[in-house]
Computed example of a mutant assay.
Amino acid sequence: MQFDFAALDTATGYKLLTATVTPRPIAWVTTSSVEGVVNAAPFSFFNVVGSAPPTVVLGLQGDPVKGFKDTARNIMATGEFVVNLVPESLAEAMNITAIDAPTGINELDIAGLEPAPSIKVTPPRIARSPVALECTMHSSIVTGPHQTLVVGRVVSMFIDDAYVIDAARGHVDNTALALVARSFGSEYIRTRDRFAMDRPTWAGWHNQTPPKA
């Protein structure tokens, strides 16, 4: 079946995208307001999009009536944010920070989480998160009346020592991180079930594939 997004209502389009584009990594974003109030919220419209320079992207959506949430407003006002990654052990706490709290409420307090100071940006990281990417806003693109794309440059990265295998070579125990990803609706996906495939080379492919008659 073919779906014409120009003919679909927004809610149906959202369902189609989030039900098929899975798993999606979760950015557990911490920001600070101009007044210094910390905010934390999870976003699954997120990914790494480059490494030279290291770059991430966040898709931020606002309510047609209430407008953008604190995360978007804080990033636009300060140009800084931290992307914390979510292990399975913190999934419930992450879900709590998705609560529709009033502006000015620190979701870390509600979820019983402690902040830890960042090195190069003002917003703190989440102390129990095993990985935190400190970011400054590179640019933002308005992609719709109630959505904005934020491109962030990673200026510093924290990884818990327990998961660093070889710092000099950038080797991390990815399996032990036990990160979770977003699926559809209220469902999440564990990253334990894996399989490996070696990327083919043209030379190897050419030598192994018999020529066509």
Rank of each mutant, 00 (worst) to 15 (best):
P115M: 08
P115H: 08
P115G: 09
P115N: 09
A116V: 12
A116G: 08
P117R: 09
P117L: 11
P117G: 07
P117H: 03
S118N: 04
I119T: 14
V121M: 05
V121D: 05
V121A: 08
V121Y: 01
P123D: 09
P124S: 07
P124H: 03
P124G: 07
R125E: 09
I126D: 03
I126M: 05
I126C: 06
A127P: 04
R128E: 15
R128V: 06
S129E: 12
S129H: 03
S129D: 10
P130N: 14
P130H: 05
V131N: 06
A132N: 06
L133Q: 04
E134N: 07
E134G: 08
C135S: 12
C135L: 08
C135I: 08
M137A: 14
M137R: 10
H138Y: 07
H138R: 15
H138F: 07
S139H: 03
S139T: 12
S140N: 09
S140W: 01
V142A: 08
T143I: 14
G144Y: 00
G144W: 00
G144I: 04
T148C: 10
L149R: 06
L149H: 05
L149N: 07
L149P: 04
L149Q: 12
V150F: 08
V150D: 00
V150N: 01
V150P: 02
V150G: 03
V151F: 05
V151A: 09
V151P: 02
G152R: 05
R153Q: 14
V154L: 08
V154W: 00
V155H: 03
S156R: 05
M157D: 04
F158L: 14
F158A: 13
D160T: 10
D160K: 08
D161E: 15
D161A: 13
D161M: 02
A162M: 06
A162L: 10
Y163E: 13
Y163G: 13
V164H: 03
V164M: 07
V164P: 05
I165F: 00
I165Y: 00
I165R: 11
I165V: 15
I165A: 12
D166V: 05
A167F: 00
A167T: 07
A168H: 03
A168P: 02
A168I: 08
G170T: 07
G170F: 01
H171Y: 02
V172M: 04
V172H: 02
V172D: 03
V172T: 06
